[in-house]
């Protein structure tokens, strides 16, 4: 057994310089590049970005459930309560998964086993993470969880196909929360749901988070969901965090040209506009990232300096970082 090193002066969750690579067809896909972030108990961090930006990969790295073949964490440290998860043995890791950290997956339709009763699926998770073998107690806990997510306990004996999409997603949440995790990784938990159901589920998640002081990493591409649920926001582009700050800072003073473009591309609910303002071009090929700033080929402020070398994080305000070397020009251009 190796010595467990526990650092005490650390935030609840702290990721440092995480770098994840996939191998595909002999090429290296740079999925996550030098991502660092912190999260405190009871807070919610939103990871925002487009398809393929590497959001889900970050969450999967925390749980260490990346596919074995072809992917590996090339660099970085992930500390949960001061303990480096990447150095734990698989056995120790299994105790963390579901117990301390659990994940809600995007698609509620496929996350449940269709031939098992929903209640039993919750009870199973409870029993896997409890010391005793008292079946009745696990069942009681499962019924409690159903009630918490707003499903009557008598639906314990129902099968997944008898539930609507929103109810299935609530069952998935019940499973994720059954062991009172300290950290919840929610990967697009409401994307597959209708807006009226989404509102219910988001409310539920927020309520449970406040009740149990759970830390949450919310992955989404929907700025509206972020505005509603998150405390801090990290905007991801091509595997790197390009802007990081509190919700107020990001929504009131977006500083990176990509973040600004992202807000500009959403049709406004309150104002009429003839044309939308799309970001020109496409996200870069992750096997072949451009030199320097990865957004530079689509950026109207880009200079030669942007295309030369990797761009560091610049502080625009306390706690508001932005990976852009032309912030001043961007700010002027915006006015």
């Amino acid at each position: 057994m190796h010595q467990k090193e526990i650092k005490t002066d650390m935030p609840f969750l702290s990721i440092k310089d995480l770098k994840v690579e996939y191998k595909s067809d002999g090429q290296i896909v740079h999925a996550v590049n030098d991502v660092s972030l912190q999260l405190e108990r009871g807070k919610t961090l939103g990871l925002v970005g487009e398809t393929g930006a590497g959001k889900t990969t970050i969450a999967k790295s925390i749980l260490r459930i990346l596919p074995d073949i072809g992917s590996h964490i090339a660099n970085g440290e992930i500390y949960l309560e001061g303990e480096n998860l990447l150095k734990l043995s698989e056995n120790d890791m299994r105790k963390i998964r579901g117990n301390k950290v659990s994940m809600i997956f995007q698609d509620p339709m496929t996350a449940l086993n269709p031939v098992l009763r929903v209640g039993d699926q919750i009870a199973e998770v409870v029993s896997l993470h409890s010391d005793n073998n008292n079946r009745a107690e696990h069942e009681k806990r499962a019924k409690e969880m159903l009630e918490i997510v707003g499903i009557p306990a008598e639906r314990y004996y129902a099968y997944p196909h008898q539930f609507s999409g929103g109810m299935k997603q609530r069952v998935v949440i019940a499973i994720a929360l059954a062991c009172n995790p300290d950290l919840l990784l929610a990967d697009e938990p409401t994307t597959a749901l209708d807006v009226t159901i989404q509102a219910q589920v988001l409310d539920l998640i927020a309520e449970l988070r406040n009740k149990y002081n759970t830390a949450m990493l919310l992955i989404t591409h929907d700025m509206g969901v972020v505005a509603q649920v998150c405390d801090t926001v990290a905007v991801i582009y091509a595997g790197s965090i390009i802007e990081y700050g509190t919700k107020q800072q990001i929504f009131k003073h977006p500083s990176h040209p990509y973040t600004i473009g992202l807000f500009g591309a959403i049709p406004d609910m309150n104002e009429d506009e003839e044309w939308l303002h799309p970001i020109d071009g496409l996200p870069p090929d992750p096997t072949n990232l451009p030199q320097g700033c990865s957004f530079s080929p689509r950026c109207k402020f880009a200079t030669d300096a942007c295309r030369k070398e990797a761009i560091g994080m610049y502080k625009t305000q306390d706690g508001h970082d932005c990976r852009c070397c032309c912030i001043e020009a961007v700010m002027k251009g915006e006015d």
Binding site: G52, L282, P284, P286, T287
Partner: peptide, 8 residues
């Protein structure tokens, strides 16, 4: 990984 890369 996504196929949205336009890489042909």
């Amino acid at each position: 990984m996504p196929k949205t890369t336009g890489h042909a």
